[in-house]
């Protein structure tokens, strides 16, 4: 598992990553997990609102938006890196 310190909040538009670990302390993060942001899920940074927050991601073809604050709870690594 890549421990590069990269999170969903530190991606650029077009980046595709896999979620490695989730810091589940924030209930809002757990809510995002019930929407499918769990370890192993592939996710793509699509765009963001003005000022870079909230961020829009693509998860299995669906757009989902969240705030930077929650995005930080998801540690990620580039697609294919861990295989």
């Amino acid at each position: 598992m890549a421990e590069s310190g990269k999170t969903l909040a530190s991606m650029n538009a077009g980046d595709k990553v896999v979620i490695d670990a989730v810091d589940t302390r924030d209930p809002q993060v757990r809510r995002l997990m019930t929407l499918g942001l769990v370890e192993g899920a592939e996710i793509e940074h699509a765009t963001s609102a003005l000022g870079g927050d909230p961020i829009e991601f693509i998860l299995f073809g669906q757009a989902i938006s969240m705030r930077r604050e929650q995005a930080r709870a998801f540690s990620v690594s580039p697609v294919g890196a861990g295989e």
Binding site: V22, R30, M33, T34, G36, V38, E39, A41, F60
Partner: peptide, 19 residues
């Protein structure tokens, strides 16, 4: 573990396998 997080992990693992 947080129960809801554990549930999401377990159920989505099944979902991905099914997909």
């Amino acid at each position: 573990d947080e129960p809801l997080a554990a549930e999401a992990r377990a159920r989505y693992a099944w979902v991905r396998k099914t997909m």
